[in-house]
Design a protein around this nucleic acid. Structure first.
Lengths: 318, 318
DNA sequence: GTGAAAGCGCTAACAT
DNA sequence: ATGTTAGCGCTTTCAC
């Protein structure tokens, strides 16, 4: 027989163990199908091999891929992920953080920009912010929203659009604001500064569709840059419903590059973010932090890519 | 001062505590911002207020809503959910079960039909099977796949289709087989038993599109019942690409009722499952089991609903 | 190199 | 009605 201490030593590759003893222990563990109790281990080590992942709403088609990426990477390193839907409510986010801490999660990845750094500081748990920058103090992985928006706007210009509208995302979401800023700057750079037309959206298809319907009744436009893909679909529906053709009468480009964009007719042009890579990178950064390794960089801004499909493919220039 | 035992007593509403003392304890807890350590509690009670949720792939648009429902309900009862993507691999599912058990999860909801009941028995953890029946021994929540398939097939017949093809889902997925069976039986009932045309799909858009392209080259058809919505979109793309019109030349109906069906042009008819309700019900059943309450019923089969949209709306009867 | 023992923070007897 | 204590299963000193 051997003592529990010895078993623990072989499990943790910790302290000295006779080779022969180690062999016997491993053999016995296998035979008895012994699996160490992770809860007891967590209690002692104050670390649970579990992380929290807080997203606004997994039902929003932008997030599944992000979540999947995080889960995949975490899984490689033997971490397990607790999924939390916050609906963008600070209160819910706060509650989740509380619960997660009570469970000794080793870290949290969150998609939010609503917290004051002082509050985050108090949480005293490693975090990584994903998709939306929170504060320079905290590691983040985001895509280049500003540049992507300029790209999209310029692309519409290049296919001949001159009256380019932008459907803006929610005001409290930083990345939506960055995209808006990109639109504004590019419009000015194109000499269309005074032709700007901004439609207020909330990242939802339905609302965007209605807003575009309303806008079409009052304004002339020949191109729409939507703040995300869902709203681009909304715009597409609105335009088609008004009897106008896409891309001939109005060209449309979305943002995010979710699979949905390939399912519409016509297929939607979009600015694609490396969604999976963003999630994977956030996960890797969190692990580094947990393991106390130094981060080469605190903030990662991934490049976006213009994806041209049918919704902006037209020959004629105005 | 009070002893830890007393604090525990007020926390658990357990044993007798002087009212005045309770007040003081609660006050102190608030002031000190004391939060009990859930890990220690779990170690003692062998229950962690955490459940596992194993789905094939959160990236598949059928699952986000299901996951969301589970999370919502679990949240109400103060449970937290660990999300696991199995890619339909038994091996991965097994590993997850192992890990979850080591973490003392109180129960597991899983979407699979690949386990022998003897194996599940050994896990010795409350489970609920979701979307796919596993075995009569285990509580399950599924929709009426057979009836839904008959509904879809009959609907195509009623809008005038006589050469109705079915795109079948993967063979190892029971619900896909149920739908296939429904198609067969209904075709026979309609007197079209010898006009059946089955296209093998794997629940993926892309593969379905190609399979339909190939089928269109060889066979005549005027209606397609796809085993799920993703494949219906694939079929839609294939048909359109062949220069045929939907629904005039070929009517298409999908299955599941995911939001995607409203985003295509034309919008897709489908058999909608009460996805959110299924997830929520599975969660409620799991909680009942965990709390040791009796289940009125072991197996819940929820009704499905025919949703008619543009992809099957045509006047002309053949 | 290995065993004995203390302790992580909690809860449930068992005293008082 | 409340305090004291043992123990959940693990890891880590500290002896030997």
């Amino acid at each position: 027989m051997v003592s529990v201490a010895t078993v623990s030593r072989v499990l943790n590759q910790n302290g000295y163990v006779n080779e022969e003893t180690e062999r016997r222990v491993r053999q016995a563990m296998k035979e008895l199908n012994y699996k160490p109790n992770e809860v007891a281990r967590a209690l002692f080590k104050k670390t649970s091999k579990t992380v929290g992942l807080i997203v606004p709403d997994i039902t929003n088609p932008f997030f599944p891929e992000l979540v999947r990426a995080v889960e995949d990477v975490m899984n490689i390193y033997d971490y397990t992920v607790i999924l939390c839907n916050s609906d963008e409510k600070v209160e819910k986010e706060r509650e989740y953080i509380e619960v997660l801490k009570q469970k000794y999660v080793d870290g949290v990845i969150l998609t939010t920009n609503q917290f004051a750094p002082e509050e985050v500081e108090e949480w005293d748990v490693p975090i990584v912010v994903l998709d939306r920058p929170l504060h320079e103090r905290y590691p983040s992985v985001v895509a280049d929203n500003y540049e992507g928006a300029r790209l999209a706007t310029r692309h519409l210009y290049e296919v001949g659009c001159r009256r380019i509208a932008h459907i803006q995302g929610p005001n409290h979401v930083v990345n939506a604001m960055e995209r808006f800023r990109g639109y504004q700057d590019e419009m000015r750079a194109l000499g269309l500064g005074d032709r700007q037309l901004v439609i207020q959206g909330n990242y939802q298809l339905k609302q965007a569709k209605e807003a575009v319907m309303a806008a079409l009744a009052e304004h002339d436009m020949d191109g729409i840059f939507a703040g995300n893909d869902a709203m681009a679909v909304g715009a597409l529906k609105a335009v088609q419903q008004c009897g106008l053709r896409v891309p001939d009468d109005i060209a449309i480009i979305g943002y995010d590059g979710i699979p949905l964009t390939e399912m519409t007719t016509p297929e939607l042009s979009t600015v694609s973010q490396p969604i999976y890579e963003m999630g994977a990178m956030a996960a890797r950064i969190l692990i580094k932090q947990i393991e106390g390794k130094p981060l080469e960089k605190l903030h990662y801004q991934l490049p976006v890519q213009l994806v041209v499909r049918q919704s902006t493919s037209r020959r004629g220039l105005t």
